[in-house]
Structure formats: C-alpha cells, structure tokens
Design a protein around this nucleic acid. Structure first.
Lengths: 352, 352
DNA sequence: CTTTTTATGAGGTACGTGCCTCATTTTGCT
DNA sequence: AGCAAAATGAGGCACGTACCTCATAAAAAG
C-alpha cells in the first residue's frame, strides 16, 4: 500500500493536522517542522492521492474555449475535439465548453472576455487575432482570477507559458524547406496564399518561410502574400490572376488553416503534381488533396493535442502546479500520403 | 453540482443499493429496473465520479514494461519516459516499473513472462522479437489475468487492439517517398541498413519501402538489406564494403532504431549531404546528425506517447473499458531540421 | 393460499484528503 | 518568571462511490 497522510504524520513525528498544514501551505508552522515533514515525504515516498484530494475538495474545473465564429474546417475539427475531451474528462470533474466570438472587432472580443467571471468559469483558452484590446482584456481577466491561455495565435508580449500552439516561424521554415527540396533546383516563383496578413501567425510563418527560401534556395522567388479574406470568389480571382501574370509559378504555399478556397482555385487551373503545393492543417479537404496529389505535404498541428494541452495547462494553473513543459510542446507535423493516418481515423484525427 | 448516485436513485425511483447494483453489474436486478436506472442516467446526465470510485476501490494499477536489455539510445529514451510517466501517474494510483529481458532466447523470454502473476502485476507492455514461444506465453499470461499489450514490435496473429506502435509498412513507405523526392530523379542505388532482418518490424519496413520505390522511382535501385547485428565494427565493415562495391550509391535508409553505428560508418566515408539519408527515431545521435546534415530526415515515433498510450490501453483493459482508438494511433513523424523541437527539449523529447 | 425464490431497501463502514474548531503545548518576549 | 503569541494536537465532518449485511417486499412457484 502506498503511504497516506497518516503514515506521513507518523514518520515525521507530527500530527495529521500539521501534515495537512504543510501539504496545503497553510500558515502557522515553524520552518523546522515544515522541513521535517518534507524530509519525511522524501523518505517514505509519500505522494498525495489526487483522487482523494479532488473528492475532498469536490473541486470542479470549468474551462471554456473561445473560438472564432468562422466555419473553417480546422475550427470544426477543433470543436469536435473539444466536446470529445469534455466527454472524456467529465468523470474527473472537468467541464469544457466552447463559445464563439466574432473576430471582426477587437473591442467586442474584449467586452466578451470581460463579461466572464471566476464564479462562472475557471479558465479559458482564447483564440483571437492579436490586438492590444484583447491582450489587455486577457490580463485583466487573469487578475480577476480567470486563467487564460492563448491558443494557436498568440498575443504580443505574451509569455511562452501562456501559449498553446506551434512555433509559426518554424512552421513557415518547414514549408520552405519542403518546397525547396521537392522542387529539385528548378527556377521559378512561389505563390504564397493567406487568409489575412494581419494575424501574428501568418506574419511569423511568412517570416520563417522567406528566411529559409532566401538562404538556401536562390532558384526560388517568393511572390507577395495573397490575401483571400476568407472569400471564395476573391480567392479564385487573385490566385488565377497571379498564375496568369506569372507563367513561371512552380510552387505554392497555402499558409492559412482555411485551405479550401485556394486549393479549389488552384485545382481548376493546374493539374495535380504540376506545382509543388504545401498547405496547413489536416482537414477533409487537405486530406483528399494530399491523396489526389493536389498538395505534396501538409504541415499540421494536432487539434486533439491542442485541446488537451490547453486543458492540462489551465488545470495546472488552477492548482498552482508546475507543468511538464516537454509534454506540452506542440509538434509541427509533416504529413505526406504515406504517413497519413488511415481512413477510419479521418473523422477523428487526434492521435495523441 | 453534478448529479451523484443519490440523485440518480431518486430520479430512477429506486434505492441507492439498487443503483449500485446496476452501476457495477451486480446480479439480482430485474431487467425492467436496470432499464429504469439507465434511463435515469441518460435523463439527468449522471457520470460516475472516477475520483470517488477509485478512492473507494482503493484500486492500484501495477504495470510493467518489458524491454530489451540492449542499450540503444531509443530504448534509453523509452526508459526515461517510463519513469517520467510513473512519477506523473503515481498520484492516480498507477505504478509503472520496467524490467529488462535479454532478447537472445525466445524460451527465456517466455519463461520470464510466465513467472509474472496477477497478484504482483496487473499488466505488461511487452517489447520482444516475434516468436511463437513469446506469443503463446503472452496468451497464457492474459488467461491468467495479466493484461498484455505489444510494444513497437508485434507478434504474429495479434489483434490490432493489442499493439502500440507505428504501422511499420507505412513507415518504410514514408522513407522511400522522402528519398524518392529528395533525390530529384537521379539514377543510383539505395543502401538499406538494419540491425537484423529477423524482426517483424524490419521486414515490414522493408516491404513498404520496396513497394513505393518500385512503383514510383525506377531510377532508384534498393540494395539488399545489410544487417549490423548491433556490432559497431561489423557495421563499419559492411557499410564501407557496400560503398566500395557500388560507386553509385546515392541514398541510404537506416531502418533500425539503433542508428549510431551505420551513421558513424557513413560519416567517415562520405561528406554530409553527399547522400540522401533517412534514419529512424529521434535520439541525441540522430538529432545531431540531422543538424549536421548527415541525415536528411528522421522518421520517428514518439517514445513518450508510446508509453502513455500503452498505459491508457492497459488501464482500460483492467477496467474492462472501451478506449478511444483515435487517440491511441501512434503517428509516424517526419522530422527535418526546421520542425525539430528546440534544444531545451532535446533531453525530454516527448511532446504529447 | 402458502412457500420459496428473487428483488429491493435501509443502513453502515471504508477509502484518503481537505478543512474546520477547540484545547493544549511550546516558543519568544519583557 | 510570567505572559502573550505562535505552533501543534485531537477530533470530527464532508466528498461520492464501493461493498457489505440484514431485513423486508415483491414475484414466482407449488
């Protein structure tokens, strides 16, 4: 049997009450006594029984994901992972909800955030474009006692500890490297398509992309970023325009998580395999594009992992606990046809 | 507050005792009553409080990883993840140990397995080369009440549900695809190095590798697999011999998890970048090889994830629970310089 | 209808920890 | 030394579930 607080009390030569005071950082214990207890903990290998502690505290964690309203496939995927995780963690007293926020107006987002209060929600995972209003609201929210982590797209001057997502500069660099290698020294231009270049993540990806391309692939010239603004017909227009005006486009980097419009636009003008194409995030559309050879590789972050990592972070924050950094680093996945997860998992891609 | 068994009893119009009987599948309840309780569960959204249940049962899970004795870097990594996971899960009543088995003799492995009994260990994760003796021992162990999952290298005629690891055929195919694309249509031969071809995983990797190469890259000819048998000087000899006898080797696929010897052998005869090289598993050696451009990409399975997935599986088995298949699929990771996890995480690579 | 069998109810104890109160001891201070 | 303040001990209740016993009610069998 594992040692309990009772054993610990005996080993430390103190009473249960004192053990309790030490374990829960309550005041009124001499340093000497604290030390004695801690030594006893080491000695007998005491580990607090989390189940019992949670039960005793009858603690609930109420977390909420604040996601953009737009109906992009990646966001839908994320939503599914959220409710999946909710179901999975309900038995441990963790409730996970999600709320949509329109992304247009930073003030609106800030107002929405400030409506939240610690007696209704213990922590949020926020996915919102970078803006001073949002950042300030997040800080104020923390001060009120609602934990905040930033999901996927971060805010300025935010600590690494608050961020759950991939290193976007590295992701852009990865894209450039893959294009550079796949293109096999051919001369030509690379089209870069994004939803918007106002977001921090897009800028970082572009930065990493350019860096690698400039440094190692003088044969490739990256065109200025095209912005679709999430509009299918606009996407169609600007992509086709670019192809028309640049006969020597030999690769494309589709930077934003909504790859549908750019892919569709490319699809109607080029044959699969004609261009080297890299897209982001695994969705039904990008998956089938990969299988059709419309795209050569996908750079992905795992939505299930994003959700679980956010929850672990929020929970650790609520308990004022340290976390295992190494477990929370979100990896930049490279997916090609061969290492794609088999079909049965298509809908529930969340391996981790 | 979430509903408790008490609320459930009230909602179902039965007593606590009956609720308990239904929840824990105890006999002596009419079908009609069972149905009523189950309907009440649905209606009020009852979810059993796992913390309380575990506490009440004062249940412990004792799991053991059975690993090969050989000291390869990947195995060391695995061992570290195991003790890390042990520390992390101790609070939840899960004890994880590991035991080394010499791999030479299947009979010895089988005997070691059969020594285990359900009153000392609840489940094992077994990593052992394929053999009828081992397979039979595993089956008998299960019958005795010790849960078994197969780690990394599976056994013949084993269900998918019992396996934790990557799809090795797909991994080999991935390697071939990367080599094929990176080589840019050049003509030449591909060296394939393995520790041994007696293991199921090596055979499967080779199979996937050949399939893709044959189908899509007629410019590449794969040489017969070289077997190092884990011997540094032998590795040196056969690799150099092969290079000498085949002037047109332009790529290498290092198939086994111990990449040190083959890499060292290659290193002393070729310049970084001269060959396209793909290796398996992220270790200190392969990491630095990637950074030095000694290798072009690493195909990896995440050791931390392997361990956690095994534990989740074993635990679910002990509780006779269903698992989320999608969460347990181990991904085949492709690592290049750009998407490598930063240095700080080198020692504790286990993102997930 | 009675008897036997089967279902259900009532109630208790246990699990390990958190959190509270109140009494008692020890410490530091003058 | 005497006193206030601080530290510690003793004990109890709570959390939600598991698992037990014993009594009683309902159903099935005769």
């Amino acid at each position: 049997m594992r040692p309990t607080t009772k054993d610990l009390a005996k080993a430390a030569g103190v009473s249960l009450a004192t053990v309790d005071r030490v374990l829960n950082n309550r005041p009124g214990v001499r340093k000497k006594t604290v030390k004695a207890v801690n030594e006893a903990i080491e000695k007998i290998g005491f580990v607090r029984n989390l189940s019992a502690a949670n039960l005793a505290k009858s603690k609930r964690y109420r977390f909420r994901f604040m996601l953009p309203r737009r109906g992009d496939l990646f966001i839908s995927e994320l939503r599914e992972r959220i409710s999946e995780t909710d179901r999975g963690l309900a038995a441990e007293g963790i409730e996970i909800s999600h709320q949509e926020i329109s992304q247009a107006d930073p003030h609106l987002i800030a107002r929405t955030l400030l409506k939240l209060s610690p007696d209704k929600v213990d922590g949020i995972a926020l996915m919102a474009p970078e803006s001073p209003q949002v950042r300030d609201a997040a800080i104020r929210l923390q001060e009120k006692g609602v934990q905040v982590v930033h999901l996927i797209s971060g805010q300025l001057e935010m600590s690494d500890m608050d961020f759950v997502g991939i290193d976007n500069r590295a992701a852009g660099a990865t894209a450039a490297r893959l294009i550079g290698r796949f293109i096999c020294g051919q001369q030509g231009k690379v089209m870069v398509v994004s939803e918007t270049m106002n977001a921090r993540d897009s800028l970082e990806r572009r930065h990493g992309f350019d860096q690698v391309l400039r440094q190692d692939y003088p044969n490739l010239i990256a065109l200025p970023s095209l912005e679709t603004h999430g509009d299918q017909s606009r996407a169609q227009e600007i992509v086709l325009n670019t192809l028309r005006n640049n006969q020597d486009v030999i690769a494309a980097y589709i930077m934003s998580s909504e790859a549908r419009s750019p892919l569709n636009a490319l699809h109607c003008r080029t044959d699969p395999g004609e261009l080297v194409v890299i897209a982001h995030e695994l969705t039904e559309r990008t998956r089938s594009a990969l299988l059709n050879k419309e795209v050569d590789a996908i750079i992905a972050q795992n939505p299930g992992h994003l959700v679980r990592s956010s929850v672990r972070l929020l929970r650790a924050r609520c308990d004022n606990r340290e976390i295992m950094q190494s477990q929370e680093q979100i990896r930049i996945e490279i997916l090609i046809q061969e290492n794609l997860i088999p079909d049965g998992f298509a809908a529930s891609y969340s391996a981790q």
